[in-house]
Simulated scan of single mutants.
Amino acid sequence: MPQTVKAVVARSKGAPVTVEDIVVPDPGPGEAVVAVQACGVCHTDLHYREGGINDEFPFLLGHEAAGVVESVGEGVTEVAPGDFVVLNWRAVCGDCRACRRGRPQYCFATFNAEQKMTLVDGTELSPALGIGAFAEKTLVAAGQCTKVDPEADPAAVGLLGCGVMAGIGAAINTGGVGRGDSVAVIGCGGVGIAAVAGARLAGAAKIIAVDLDPRKLEQAKALGATHVVDASKDDVVETIQELTDTFGADVVIEAVGRPETWEQAFYARDLAGTVVLVGVPTPDMKIPEVPLIDVFGRGGSLKSSWYGDCLPSRDFPMLVDLYRQGRLDLDAFVTERIGIDDVEAAFDKMHRGDVLRSVVMI
């Protein structure tokens, strides 16, 4: 039977979120109901609340989550009730042109649950990134559930569901960082610091973290940065070149999503180097007027990274294993553990840069 549970809802643009009763239907074919244990507070949730994604209010917020599968619908074989899972927003279809070419991480037809969760009056909810996990329970497509080590801390591994995976994947999957490489990361919020951690995992010899906030630079050092650049005081391009024997970094990861920082990334890379854009720009932003001869003359690659080009079924279990081995400090991303009533306050802390991640414990 459908269940009524507590959840965090954004009813209108810019309005404070509210904790309300919602109705979660029984899972249909290919679907699963997950009892959520922890869910990180991500900038994307704030973008939803502010109408920056679309205007399909009311939104059921939350998407960086881990929990236990409670029930599954017809035809589900990849997970079963009792499995501990991390949720993802890219359930691959297995049949599009990318999947048929053996590149499911680029699936062009990812999907979510068919049924809708609702308010108690029947109003349909739009779940953030097809998940909606600031809730005691949520309904997702079974392909959005990735089974991982049940001994892992839900608050830590749930963050792989979005920001941490985006950053680590930008370094390893998109940027192709390898042993001995030099890497610069511009912007050290949650995604940027995760890119620092990813570069460290990949064996980069020099990892340069760039930000305006000294607190974030200290966090970057704790997670593997060998050098830091305070962009409020130093010329970013010149400093990165100085730190790389005048050449520039092999891989530069832009984790801000602004034209000026993308331009810094372009000129801070070595010849034949790689620029990775993982910071999310607003729709009105455009690539700076970089002379085409500079694009031609410097060679290399200019890439964007969407969800770290990850394949959850491949990457989540591997990263959770590294976490359990003590080789990836996911605990460092968890600044505080809060209740479901504290999401609005967590948005304020995030906006001020006071936290890497507040995590709602349910």
Results as ranks from 00 to 15, higher is better:
D348C: 02
W262C: 08
A80H: 05
H227S: 07
V252D: 11
D211T: 13
T239R: 13
N54A: 14
T246S: 08
G308R: 00
G180N: 09
G161P: 01
K6T: 01
S126A: 10
A345I: 03
W262V: 14
V5M: 05
K286Q: 11
G192Q: 02
L46M: 12
R100E: 11
P2N: 12
A7R: 04
F347N: 06
D121R: 05
F247D: 10
G130E: 05
A35L: 09
D348E: 15
T118H: 02
D55N: 15
F134M: 07
A194E: 07
L330H: 14
D309I: 00
F84Q: 05
V334I: 09
D21L: 02
V92A: 10
G224P: 10
K13N: 08
C188E: 14
V278A: 07
E263D: 13
R269W: 06
K303H: 08
T110G: 00
Y267N: 15
I22N: 02
V5L: 08
R269D: 04
V33R: 15
Y267H: 13
Q241V: 10
P288E: 03
G180V: 13
G224F: 13
R103D: 07
R337Q: 15
V24W: 04
A128H: 01
L201S: 08
L139W: 03
Q325L: 12
V251A: 06
R314T: 11
R314E: 11
G175M: 08
K13Q: 11
R90V: 12
H47D: 09
A346S: 14
E263Q: 15
K116I: 00
G158L: 10
G51A: 07
A7L: 04
G248N: 01
E242L: 05
G192Y: 02
G308E: 00
L129G: 02
L201I: 07
A195E: 07
V8D: 09
V85P: 11
V276W: 00
Y307N: 09
L160S: 02
L356Y: 10
A156G: 00
I338G: 04
A32Q: 13
Q241L: 07
L271P: 00
T123V: 06
V157W: 08
E238C: 00
G130N: 07
G94N: 09
V79P: 08
G40V: 12
Q37C: 03
E344C: 03
A152G: 04
G187T: 10
G14H: 04
A197G: 02
L217M: 14
K6F: 00
T226M: 04
G163Q: 05
K286P: 00
I362F: 15
R200M: 14
A171G: 03
G198I: 01
T18R: 12
A155K: 12
A98I: 00
V19N: 02
A222D: 14
A268S: 14
A66N: 13
G339Q: 06
V140H: 01
G299M: 04
V72C: 07
P281Q: 07
I172Q: 06
